[in-house]
Design a binder for these strands. Structure first.
Lengths: 139, 139
DNA sequence: ACCACACTTAGAGTAACTCTAAGTGTGTCG
DNA sequence: CGACACACTTAGAGTTACTCTAAGTGTGGT
């Protein structure tokens, strides 16, 4: 459906300096669907995204880093709106560093909490599995 | 809003055998909102749930265990429909043990994967934090 | 008897995707 | 050169799992 869209992108453009990736490549390597990536772009998460003459998105390594950051922030439960705020801060430069740092640290704490919760759930699920397993031994 | 609903439940009902909990107690101890618990009930996740004469839900320890199981399964990404299927299997008894075990094991694997992903995100977020921190040191 | 409060059901609202439809543009193949 | 295969666009509908509100009922404590 969305595969192998940009076979030609990396071929003869500018093999010298910065590598650029098509949306399908990015989708495959990150595991995030092209739909979602376009949605994130519409949300303004990639302020410096380039396009080729067809209008197709060209992701730089910096954009890829940004995508991973967005993914991490989303996983920590930060809303789209919250990330838009973060991106706006980034665009305003050095003056907003402290605030951004505060946000990142806070979400880091959330992720740590979630990891612990997940571990708890895993343990519960495992014990439920064990219960069933033992109880089913008689059959 | 929903707090201290069932102050009277545990008082003089049947202090002898099985303890029963009101929805607000359950909500507080599990961290799951009363709205969501009622929603889960409507989904059929508590087939043996008791009620008092007002019609208020009374959760046994078994129901609490079930709620935790549901939470774990939801966290692993199993849909409401999937959990309904699991509950239907449970109601059919021993004959369905193998299938239920298969489901639990599969979701356990998913949770393990998610934990790794979360760890990955945590690392990325941490490195982003560090980057900002170091870059901001000059100010 | 009265009031506060938790209950009910029905249904509307929300976030974040997730996907479809309709239409456009480009590179390649014959 | 013309057909074709795709990936693009925007707009908007659909989905999931909550999340909450509204309107009305019922019970226990004072």
């Amino acid at each position: 459906m969305d595969a192998a869209e940009n076979r030609h992108i990396d071929s003869g453009e500018k093999p010298s300096s910065a590598p650029l990736y098509g949306i399908s490549d990015v989708s495959v390597t990150t595991g995030i669907s092209a739909f979602t990536i376009r949605y994130y772009d519409k949300c303004g998460f990639f302020p410096n995204l380039q396009r080729d003459r067809r209008g197709a998105r060209l992701f730089s390594d910096a954009d890829l880093f940004q995508l991973h950051l967005v993914e991490a922030l989303r996983k920590s439960g930060l809303s789209i709106e919250g990330i838009q705020y973060f991106v706006r801060l980034s665009k305003r430069g050095d003056a907003t560093k402290a605030e951004r740092l505060r946000i990142l640290r806070a979400q880091e704490t959330v992720l740590e909490y979630q990891r612990d919760e997940l571990d708890e759930s895993l343990k519960r699920l495992h014990s439920a599995t064990m219960d069933l397993d033992v109880a089913g031994d008689s059959e």
